[in-house]
């Protein structure tokens, strides 16, 4: 069937509609993240009015509210955003690159390896701040390499990758338990941080390295967004489009692992945020343009909302990872069911 002018116009119209939708959704997501951030600063056990929050952020002295907002809530909110953005970006990069929503860093064991390394660095090596983060990123790069090498065969890369990752995650979990049991006292809150993720007791010293890496590795990823899109079309197509396939792959994976590892060193492996952000963002935006920025915003929103819900809405105080874990697992099951029906897995 020859392509007519009306067809071209129709495609153009669809594309324009998609682009508009993407812009609108991105704007709404950004506003929601800001709103959630502001709510985290204002609401809690005591309510601080917005004007007062702004004054405190600008450095005014408002007495007790200064402590609540400046010392307790601000680092927590910032860490939530930084970790959420990092997990969202890293997760979407993995999912797009490997063309499989299940190949997210928290399912294939990369988050757990960062967590195991971080807790090892803290408890056994007595490192802190940037040292922990660097240890975590080194370890998870090694583990990521290990998982990839083990999974490369002529066939079944995706399935083998996921299964190997499940095994690696189990090993990392037992390392976490082992290290924590060597600590002088069993601290349930600490344990939960490294097992499921938590932004409790956020401190600027942890946030700094994670934020820095978010900027650096985030820009690397975003600069490769087009390469990522081309790679999604398949290796051959990407090469034909002039992509240096292997270079792009390595850069993307390194940047994504760095994002995940640094965020994990600060907030723990917040369960399923990396896994959930990409698919949710794609559902909202539609398949148009890069999934990276929408996923990052979705990740930040997820962590902020889940943390707020965990703290104030559920009766008891739950760390954010427990909430996202309970949310994410049903979605994972749904995804398995759907992909089984689509016969893709």
């Amino acid at each position: 069937m020859p392509v007519t002018e009306t067809d071209i116009l129709a495609v153009g119209a669809i594309r324009r509609r998609q682009a508009t939708r993407r812009r609108i959704v991105l704007a709404i997501l950004a506003i929601l993240v800001l709103a959630a951030f502001a709510t985290t600063l204002m609401a809690g056990k005591s309510f601080v009015p917005p004007l007062e929050v702004i004054q405190i952020l600008l450095g005014a002295d408002m007495g007790g509210a200064n402590f609540t907002v400046g010392t307790l809530r601000l680092p927590r909110a910032v860490l939530s955003v930084v970790a959420g953005l990092s997990f969202g970006l890293g997760g979407a990069a993995f999912q797009t690159l490997l063309r499989n929503p299940l190949a997210s860093p928290d399912i294939i064991g990369i988050s757990s390896s960062a967590s195991a390394a971080a807790v090892f660095a803290i408890v056994v090596l007595s490192l802190d701040g940037a040292g922990v983060a660097f240890f975590a990123v080194t370890a998870s790069l090694v583990v990521a390499g290990f998982i990839f090498v083990l999974s490369f065969r002529r066939s079944g890369f995706g399935a083998r990758l996921i299964l190997t990752g499940i095994g690696v995650a189990a090993i990392c979990q037992s390392i976490i338990y082992y290290v924590l049991s060597r600590a002088p006292v069993w601290d349930a809150a600490e344990a939960l941080r490294w097992l499921t993720g938590s932004v409790n007791g956020a401190a600027w010293g942890q946030i700094g390295p994670a934020a820095l890496v978010l900027v650096i590795a985030g820009s690397v990823l975003l600069s490769r967004a087009r390469a990522l899109e081309n790679l999604r079309l398949g290796e051959d197509t990407a090469a034909a489009l002039g992509e240096r396939v292997n270079l792009s792959r390595v850069l993307i994976i390194m940047a994504a692992v760095a994002l995940i590892a640094f965020a994990t060193a600060a907030a723990g492996p917040v369960a399923f945020v990396a896994f959930l952000s990409g698919p949710i963002a794609t559902r909202l935006v539609g398949h148009y343009g890069s999934a990276l920025i929408p996923s990052a915003l979705t990740g930040a929103l997820l962590v902020l909302v889940a943390d707020f819900a965990g703290q104030y809405l559920l009766g008891a105080r739950f760390p954010v990872g427990v909430v996202t874990g309970a949310l994410g697992a049903p979605y994972l099951i749904y995804l398995i069911v759907v992909s089984n029906r689509a016969e893709k897995t």
Binding site: I166, A271, G325, L332, I336
Partner: peptide, 29 residues
Amino acid sequence: SLGRGGATPLKLALAGTATSIALASFITA
């Protein structure tokens, strides 16, 4: 076991892992 091929190792292991994580979260909660 939904879908083609019945309960392949991958699907079963994934379903089990997802369920485990959810259940562990519920236990903590």
